[in-house]
């Protein structure tokens, strides 16, 4: 059986996998990181989004072996070791951006990528468009959009440029 060596949430791991093992299966079933969810089988829902070398990817549409030698961050790896939440997690809580919590890990990972990749700021429409790859059935997205806008200044350490708002 092939082996894959990669870094997950800062820890180096080496795991036996099949060729067909998906990254999400590696995370959930081999490493017990069940925070990453599977909500569909057509790469649409985004519940499985993780960061691969700092960018968001759908872990259900990637083979575990494709992640060899790379660094994966999951929802479990976001908070500081002392439990302090990432600003995005904090803003999701503050703005009631989650209900059942199932889409939440993927939504948070996707949102962090969105904010990081827009240092120039994000308008409401850009946030809404940027969440195209994540489905939520509970919140109607209203509070998710608010939470992401609120996380932007915390992540960039400055006020959102007025033009973006």
């Amino acid at each position: 059986m092939p082996q894959v060596a990669l870094t997950v949430n800062g820890k180096k791991v080496t795991v036996d996998v099949e060729g067909r093992t998906l990254l999400v299966e590696l995370l959930r079933e081999k490493l017990g990181l069940t925070g990453t969810h599977v909500g569909c089988d057509t790469s649409q829902c985004g519940a499985c989004v993780v960061h691969l070398d700092g960018t968001s990817v759908k872990s259900c549409t990637m083979l575990a072996l494709q992640a060899a030698g790379r660094s994966v961050i999951t929802i479990e790896g976001l908070a500081k070791p002392d439990g302090t939440l990432h600003p995005m997690q904090e803003m999701f809580r503050e703005h009631h951006a989650l209900q059942c919590g199932f889409c939440t890990p993927g939504m948070v990972m996707s949102a962090i990528d969105l904010v990081q990749s827009h240092p120039e700021g994000l308008s409401e429409q850009q946030i809404r468009h940027g969440l195209e790859g994540n489905l939520c059935r509970c919140t109607g997205y209203h509070n998710i959009v608010k939470a992401i806008a609120a996380a932007w200044p915390l992540m960039h350490g400055k006020a959102m440029p007025a033009a973006a708002e």
Partner: peptide
């Protein structure tokens, strides 16, 4: 009041059936 359950859902510690 901000939700009690959010802490576990936001940190990937929810406990759903498939988990």
């Amino acid at each position: 009041v901000r939700r009690t359950e959010d802490q576990r859902f936001l940190s990937g510690r929810g406990n759903y059936t498939d988990d």
